[in-house]
Design a protein around this nucleic acid. Structure first.
Length: 244
DNA sequence: AAAAAATACAACCGCGATCGA
DNA sequence: TTCGATCGCGGTTGTATTTTT
C-alpha cells in the first residue's frame, strides 16, 4: 500500500546532533512550521520530515517548558487522563509548554507507578481490588495527588475509557475528533455529568458559532480557564470547542 | 569497583484522518 | 469519487543515565 515515509536510504536516524538542531531551528525561523515532507531537503537535513516535525515539536520549539512537572501539573494530568484516557495531545493542550510526548512519558514513568502504588488502577482510575491501599490513600473519601489543594475522588474518576487505545480516534488537524468526541462528551453530559462536576472540568462542544466560548471553572479545584481560549475554526463547518 | 536492574526520555513506527488533484 | 501525499496521534522501542546489589 503506502510506502513508509522514512525508508529513504541515507537518512539519519537516532539522536539529533547540534548541527542538525541548528539547521532545523534556523530553517523554521525563516520559513515557519509546516511542509514537513519537503523541509528536510530544503533545510539540508538528512532526516525524514516526520522526524523533523517530532524533533521540533517535542524538543526545539521555543515555548517548550522543560524540567520536572509541578505537583499541580501532575494533578491535572491525572484528572484529564481520567476524563480523556490516553489522548495525550489533548491533555498536553491543557498544560502550557508541555508536549504530548512529554506528558505520555511522564505518565508512563511516574504517575502510572504512583497510582499503582496507591492502589489505583491507572487505566480506569478505580481503586484496585487486589492492591492494598498505601498510606497516602484510604478506602473512602480517597484523595490522590493533593498537594496543590486539588483532589480527585476515585469515584469521580470512574470514567470509561471511551476509545480503544491505538490507531483510531485521532484528533484531526483542526482539533476535531470526528466521530467519538461527541460520544465521549455525551457520556460526560449524561450518566457521568456529576462526576465531571466533581472533577471541576468542563468540556463543551459548540456548533457553528465561530466566536468565543469561555469555560468558567468554579469551585475550589484547579483553575483551568486560563488555558481555555477561543478557537477560530477558519470557516470549518463545525466548530468543536473542547480544549485549546 | 563492577555488574545488574531500574529509570527517564528521545525517537521511531504504524495507523487513521484529511486534503487536494 | 477515488487515490496518493501528507499530517498528527498514540504505542512502542532504544539507549543513556542513575541507582542498587
Amino acid at each position: 500500500m503506502r510506502k513508509p515515509c522514512c525508508d529513504k536510504e541515507g537518512n539519519n536516524k537516532g539522536a539529533w546532533s547540534k548541527q542538525e538542531d541548528q539547521k532545523l531551528i534556523e530553517y523554521i525561523r525563516v520559513h515557519g512550521e509546516g511542509s514537513w515532507r519537503s523541509l528536510p531537503k530544503a533545510a539540508g537535513l538528512h532526516r525524514c520530515g516526520k522526524s523533523c516535525r517530532l524533533r521540533w515539536i517535542n524538543y526545539l520549539r521555543p515555548d517548550i517548558k522543560r524540567g520536572n512537572f509541578a505537583q499541580d501539573e501532575e494533578d491535572l494530568i491525572i484528572k484529564l487522563h481520567a476524563l480523556l484516557g490516553n489522548r495525550w495531545s489533548l491533555i498536553a493542550g491543557r498544560l502550557p509548554g508541555r508536549t504530548d510526548n512529554e506528558v505520555k512519558n511522564y505518565w508512563n514513568s511516574h504517575i502510572k507507578k504512583k497510582l499503582i502504588g496507591m492502589g489505583i488502577d491507572p487505566n480506569n482510575h478505580k481503586l484496585s481490588q487486589t492492591t492494598p491501599p498505601q498510606p497516602q490513600s484510604n478506602s473512602n473519601g480517597f484523595r490522590a495527588a493533593t498537594s496543590s489543594g486539588s483532589s480527585m475522588d476515585v469515584d469521580a474518576c470512574n470514567v470509561h475509557q471511551p476509545h480503544k487505545s491505538s490507531g483510531d480516534n485521532h484528533v484531526t488537524n483542526s482539533g476535531q475528533r470526528p466521530s467519538d468526541e461527541a460520544s465521549c462528551l455525551e457520556d460526560e453530559t449524561s450518566s457521568q455529568s456529576h462526576e465531571r462536576h466533581n472533577l471541576n472540568l468542563d468540556l463543551t462542544i459548540s456548533f457553528p458559532s465561530p466566536r468565543v466560548t469561555f469555560f468558567k471553572e468554579t469551585g475550589a479545584g484547579t483553575e483551568l480557564s486560563a488555558s481555555c481560549r477561543e478557537i477560530d475554526c477558519g470557516g470549518s463547518p463545525t466548530t468543536l470547542l473542547l480544549f485549546r
